[in-house]
Design a protein around this nucleic acid. Sequence first.
DNA 1: ATGAAAGCGCTAACAG
DNA 2: CTGTTAGCGCTTTCAT
Lengths: 344, 344
Amino acid sequence: MNTPNKRPLTLRDVSEASGVSEMTVSRVLRKRGDVSDATRKRVLAAAKELGYVPNQIAGSLASQRVNLVAVMIPSLSNMVFPEVLTGINQVFEDTPLQPVVGVTNYMPEKEEQVLYEMLSWRPSGVIMAGLEHTDATRAMMRNAGIPVVEIMDTDGRPVDSMVGISHRRAGMEMAKAIQKQGYEHIGFMGTKMPLDHRARKRFEGFTEGLAKAGIEIEERDFYSGGSALAKGREMTQAMLDRNPDLDFLYYSNDMIGAGGLLHLLDQGIDIPGQIGLAGFNDVELLQGLPRKLATMDACRLEIGRAAAQIILDRNAEDTDDAPIHKTLTPTISYGDTLRRDRRV
Amino acid sequence: MNTPNKRPLTLRDVSEASGVSEMTVSRVLRKRGDVSDATRKRVLAAAKELGYVPNQIAGSLASQRVNLVAVMIPSLSNMVFPEVLTGINQVFEDTPLQPVVGVTNYMPEKEEQVLYEMLSWRPSGVIMAGLEHTDATRAMMRNAGIPVVEIMDTDGRPVDSMVGISHRRAGMEMAKAIQKQGYEHIGFMGTKMPLDHRARKRFEGFTEGLAKAGIEIEERDFYSGGSALAKGREMTQAMLDRNPDLDFLYYSNDMIGAGGLLHLLDQGIDIPGQIGLAGFNDVELLQGLPRKLATMDACRLEIGRAAAQIILDRNAEDTDDAPIHKTLTPTISYGDTLRRDRRV
DNA sequence: ATGAAAGCGCTAACAG
DNA sequence: CTGTTAGCGCTTTCAT
């Protein structure tokens, strides 16, 4: 709280200002060990007066302990990931641990590079979206000597721990529900992202689920870029122009599903009678639409919380380092766009 | 690339494996100074073989240089902020600088605490959303001895540099446009966030702009929590029930504006004839709505880019440390919900 | 082109 | 309860 300073303050400055050894100052500032009330107060006063901010770089080097947790996600513009972050934040809120976010843009090489940079800060753990990585990425995670939790997806083999849902199974469940309600002419729309493995797995599970009932997807279309809502409109229109017999449209995410829904409502089409619809993710947005789109909760908050908890536990004193594999079960929400009365 | 290791590898390990001094290894890994091709290759091979990851904590302590830039934003669930981050990322992409994001949940004390934690890592700069902070926060920024850029808002006095738009002016411009088109009975809806200073300033500017034309806001309502789209519907309905004479509704953000738009379309109301609408922010979502909501671009990407560039420049060799104040000018997009033909 | 010594600012581990 | 000593793993600086 004084004049701007070129050289940052050190413990020594506080030590001199308070007439106490650096070590004791350090103890006060970290609330470690016993310090008399009198000295504590003097130290605190001096630190505040000077405007001292501890140097964690030096502290971490000396203590061999870093309170950072690397969190690697593909994107910030898909609300799914901020929601996972929220879950992580909730758990770390009142702990010394602090998430540091790295964004990979769905690119494996970028992921590798960002992870390398993060590990060079020697974090206390890694939370990593997805199970598909380059060999080098996997090697780094294996050799880092810290807890690693791969999240969101459980269809595969993690390096260490894992928390998520089975997207294959999610797709399959949706296929089962659709078929049970008597829909038979199915169209699929999704993003054209060869590297979005979770969307791909949902699609595969969906296809397989329908196949079990002897149904085949009649139309499919993939897009990339642009406003998802707008794309949903366009693609839906195009698909129905191509094949007016479709009676169900499955979208790989809620945003394009919402676009499709708005379009069909404009057309005055009977939903879910003439055509049923479903998306994936259960985004908050859907609450405000004229009809509620059928969807499936991806358990994002819970996944973030569980992953953070695993890192936290592993950083506790007495830990067994056994990997934890946790598969959450998403539930279908029928909303107003998927019939729910037949055969159940 | 070998067996998992308990003790992390150090420069010394690479030094021994390659038969070269630690110093030379360090030079190779940082691409600094002259090293013969032969030794460089040997070192690189050894480092890769061992799977060595440098320790930035030690490096930063020794070099007194940290490639981190603290970025402080109020929230991740409002898409505005991820977009600013995208702009920042773009500029830092091919530089050594790396953003580290801190989230404050619109709470000044939390902001203070998170900034303190970030500064303890001795970052090379701070990018901070907003101009309103606690005294302690301001003091920390002033004394940190690093470039600080306050972003998004320019209605106030920054500690150092500043990049943003004037939200008072934005509100005033919208008021002017509305009044020019002949709307006279105005309602306002926004979030109940005493700590969202930018929304508050827009509202104040809006009120003042209308006052100049002798118009007063007839209805206002504020909400908190819940799905913005759904809230927009509900509030719009309630407000029109209360006062059916309103002919224009100004929303403090596009999401509730979109909710209002969907509601009014359901009611078969003539837009923008009977009622005009406008929001704020120009979110991508709007592209997919049946009508395009009038709005104002908040220049988020550009703000992020400019802020990052200032930090970058200040960290260059020959810098004058004169604060930079940059005010961007948002433009109104009339869309389909604000008449644009009268008197222009 | 390479190496040796010193030390960045802090904390662990001991003394007292 | 408080102080002293010795590093943490790297880079700066100065030799060679």
